[in-house]
């Protein structure tokens, strides 16, 4: 039996695809490290260590330098930072992310309806008719357009149109995420089991009625999952986009760096990380709950 097994093992169908791609990857990595100039640097090791030491030294809050370590003085420093800029920036960041995902979610899901080929073809099981192409085609193109332009570029364009307030960030995140959510939702809607839809169609229900009765209940859980997943990303992006000059956390990070206040910079970076973690936790809790109840 053992011989037979060995024989079978030798005769197994093999593809060299995995091995070949691993080899190509190894070659690519070594090429970029050697050819990309990552290894050579003008700074000597000693210089770099000095830089690092100075950097770490400047991470200590300016007011507290020279004092010995005391957790209470650190806390009261953090408290003043929060009172001066932190709370307001954190609030703005959260507000931007929530406004953006609500707008983006509504727009994306509205566009997902015509973009789903089964809706476009009137749930006819024949996804390739003309009306489907005329409706789903443009909707899909619009979604592609929305999501291929990065948030950063959207924000940049809108900033020059609307001016420096929170709206360019909100709209930039909303437009980009509408493109993503719309595509994901359309995909979900198209891949639902079509029997319930077809049977309602056969009793004379209109396609909007089918959407409400057969599609929405079946897809709702996954649509909500996408919504909260994208909200997570929005929180992160809202922080970063502040670097464009809107008073979210990113703005203060950028500002502190420009003034070489590394202590403030690291404080805001950590605050940003904390907000992202809080967003992640909320989103994970909600998503777990959704999975359980549907």
């Amino acid at each position: 039996m053992k011989d037979h097994l060995i024989q079978l093992y030798r005769a197994r169908p093999k593809t060299n695809f995995v091995r070949l791609s691993l080899l190509v990857m190894a070659l690519l990595i070594s090429y970029t490290w050697i050819g990309g100039g990552f290894l050579s640097s003008n700074n000597s090791i000693i210089q770099r260590t000095e830089n690092l030491e100075r950097f770490v030294g400047e991470l200590k809050p300016y007011e507290l330098r020279g004092e010995s370590f005391n957790i209470y003085s650190y806390l009261s420093w953090a408290k003043t930072m929060m009172a001066e800029k932190g709370w307001q920036a954190a609030e703005t960041t959260l507000a931007i992310s929530v406004a953006a995902i609500v707008l983006g979610g509504i727009l994306g899901n509205l566009l997902a309806i015509p973009a789903s080929r089964n809706f476009a073809s009137n749930f006819n099981r024949d996804h390739l008719n003309l009306s489907a192409l005329l409706l789903a085609g443009p909707a899909r193109l619009l979604l592609i357009f929305l999501r291929t332009i990065p948030e950063y570029v959207w924000a940049f364009l809108l900033l020059s149109l609307i001016g420096p307030n929170a709206w360019p960030l909100v709209l930039a995140l909303a437009l980009h995420n509408a493109g993503i959510i719309g595509k994901l939702s359309a995909e979900v809607i198209e891949n639902l089991p079509d029997q319930p839809q077809v049977s309602l169609h056969s009793t004379g229900a209109s396609r909007l009625q089918i959407m409400l009765t057969a599609v929405l209940p079946a897809a709702l859980a996954r649509l909500l999952l996408f919504f909260f997943y994208r909200w997570e990303t929005c929180v992160r992006e809202a922080t970063i986009l502040g670097m464009l000059g809107i008073v979210s956390l990113g703005f203060w990070i950028q500002d502190a760096r420009a003034r070489n206040f590394y202590d403030e910079m690291i404080f805001f970076i950590l605050l940003g990380a904390l907000i992202v973690v809080i967003g992640d936790v909320i989103s994970t809790l909600v998503r777990t709950h959704i999975r359980r109840i549907f």
């Binding site: 029997q195 319930p196 309602l200 004379g204 009765t213 057969a214």
Partner: peptide, 24 residues
């Protein structure tokens, strides 16, 4: 094959039979 919407209540599935005679 079963053509009901699985996560609706029974009453909602039954009601959906009459959608063809109702407005949206």
């Amino acid at each position: 094959s079963l053509s009901l919407v699985p996560n609706l209540r029974v009453i909602q599935n039954v009601v959906s039979g009459r959608l063809g005679q109702r407005s949206f």
